[in-house]
């Protein structure tokens, strides 16, 4: 059962489109956000009902786009860009550094669920490369030292909330 807030947001989204299926992508974002950043088969079924499409259709959609997750990400999800402009100015080295620091590989969760790391293609912050997204926020012109400091702060925050 979806939380009341999520249901309200969904109703608001549905009111903006001529047909219910049109709101599928935004609804999936809202539902994912309300469930610690990932989707479950039960949630997909529920969304399918809301948008009046089959569950297979919803599964086809979430497997097409990179932002929908079927596994629980870390409290802080890092997307490190290694596309062309970021790669030219140290994106790859930044990813390697993060993997070393967290003793993990891209695509995995580390530090007891505080962090997860993902290697991503272009984030559209090319003139401010290299770029990292943590949850919803951009962090630009990063280097290993800046990222270490940021992650230390987040780690403290993450533990405080745990």
């Amino acid at each position: 059962m979806l939380a009341l807030d999520t249901q309200k947001e969904i109703a608001q989204l549905l009111s903006r489109y001529p047909i219910k299926r049109n709101a599928l992508l935004p609804i999936l974002h809202v539902v994912q956000k309300g469930n610690e950043g990932y989707l479950t088969p039960e949630l997909l079924e529920e969304v399918a009902g809301i948008c009046e499409v089959s569950q297979t259709h919803v599964e086809g959609v979430i497997s097409f786009y990179t932002m929908y997750k079927l596994e629980k990400p870390g409290k802080f999800h890092l997307q490190v860009c290694t596309c062309v402009p970021c790669c030219l100015v140290g994106g790859e080295e930044l990813l390697e550094h993060v993997e070393q620091q967290l003793d993990t590989h891209a695509g995995h969760t580390a530090d007891d669920g505080v962090f997860s790391v993902e290697e991503v293609e272009c984030l559209g912050a090319c003139s401010y490369a290299p770029a990292v997204i943590i949850n919803e926020d951009y962090h630009e012109q990063m280097n290993p030292e800046k990222l270490d400091r940021l992650m230390d702060e987040l780690r403290t925050q993450g533990q405080a909330h745990a």
């Binding site: 299926r21 049109n22 599928l24 948008c51 097409f64 786009y65 990179t66």
Partner: peptide
């Protein structure tokens, strides 16, 4: 909001995407 797919910048793919596909 889109959901992470370069191809949706192609206008007809974008239209499919905004239709919920």
């Amino acid at each position: 909001p889109g959901a992470g797919a370069y191809i949706c910048g192609e206008e007809t793919a974008l239209l499919d995407s905004i239709e919920g596909k």
